[in-house]
Amino acid sequence: MRLLISIAIALLMTGCAATTTTKEAAFPDMYSDVNRQAMLIVPVINETTAAEAPDFLNATVAQPLADKGYYVLPVPIVSNIFKEAGIIDGTQLKGIPFSTYKDKFGAESVLFIKLTSWETNYMVVSGNVTVGMEYILVSAETNNVLWSYKNTFVLDTSGSSGNLIADIIVTAISTAATDYVPVARRVHANAVTTLPVGKYHPKYLKDGKVKNVIPELASAPVERF
């Protein structure tokens, strides 16, 4: 009986270990001559009914991409330019040729972000938010997908001081509060761990062998953007 349990556990564990591949195997264009330094980030595409959720993501997206060594065209200015053209959600950009972004913004690469789920859960002493995201970076010159990432995360918004009353209050406040800026930060930070770093990063072109890309998560389909 014990042997059977051990075997079952061993099988489960190998099943749970996701295979990973290297950054350069998953995203070869990022290690080629393709120039994609100036990155345009367009407004988040919102597929949820949470109308305020994109704001948290739009407010926090520039920093992690810049920290990975990319020049990110200033998001507030870009957002305003789009707004003046009547565009407030990235969905409205569907079908526009990627070369348009090179012409209009001088961008070499374009980052599309899609929010597929945003569900807050409140359970008195614990709280969380389930966030589903798809990221896709395309070349404005070649139309190729340079990088992509999709995942659903459950982020904890609980209090955890050990003091029951304090935890209840903290959880209620943080789950009910409309400020999910820290959550949005963690979502982006999680996504960009597989992104090959850009020119301004100390490891530029040296991170190809980093083997943290899970193939199933690196396959957001470009047709959906």
Binding site: E52, D55, A59, T60, D67, K68, P76, V181, Y200, P202
Partner: peptide, 20 residues
Amino acid sequence: VTESGYYWGNYSETYYEYIK
């Protein structure tokens, strides 16, 4: 100071307040 050597202060917070 972040991994590419930048200091961002409370950039996201003040930008979010403006968006909101």
